[in-house]
Amino acid sequence: MDELAFRRSLYAEPHSTDPQIKAAATSSERNRAFAEELLRLDAAISAASKVPVPEGLASRIIWQGSISEFALHKKRTRTYIALAASLAFVTGLSVVVWQQQTSTIDLTAEALAHMNHVEGYRGSTVSLAETNGKLAAFGAALISDIGVIKSANFCWLDKVRSLHLIVETTSGLVSVFFVPDVDGSEFGQRFSNQQFVGEKLTTEKAQVLMIGEQGQDLHELSEKINNNLVFSA
């Protein structure tokens, strides 16, 4: 190994364990001196490189690690809470929307469904005065008979309080529902299912639903109600 290569190698790695370099280091006094000189230099560099480490650095690093884990846990918990909250919110919102939807669409269906429960009405009749007493709840009154009123009861169509009259007409029994003019209670002019047929009258303060058997003529009663129903101011 020539001297230049030897020196270069030692400069790069003063602590080299390469046998060739170790051999070269003992081959001459000059080389030995040079190797020792470089070891001294390296010791000096090593000592000089040991700048003081900031006090408590290890504790700060460890502390920071635990904190980050804790923060991660908290963040996860927060995420779950947020998730639960949005779920609850969406559920609540859906219920409200669903309820509003049902209240807008289904009054006629409710009225038709209600017909299935009126089979067993009382055989008695209800006077016009008694009927008007109940109609007063809608601010309405009948000025004369519209037929024999067999029954007059308040009932609930969905969430709407209505007055249910059962009237005997020439074509048979007809159910008449007085429904306050609630926002969102919409009916088609005519409606029906397999068994019943219905017609709607819109008056100034209330809606009137008439429901009879399929094929029954509701026109006569409709005329009578139209002519006799009045509203207080």
Partner: peptide, 11 residues
């Protein structure tokens, strides 16, 4: 190795 050599040489 070259860089190590230069580093110590310069120092």
């Amino acid at each position: 190795m070259t860089r190590l050599f230069r580093a110590r040489n310069q120092l």
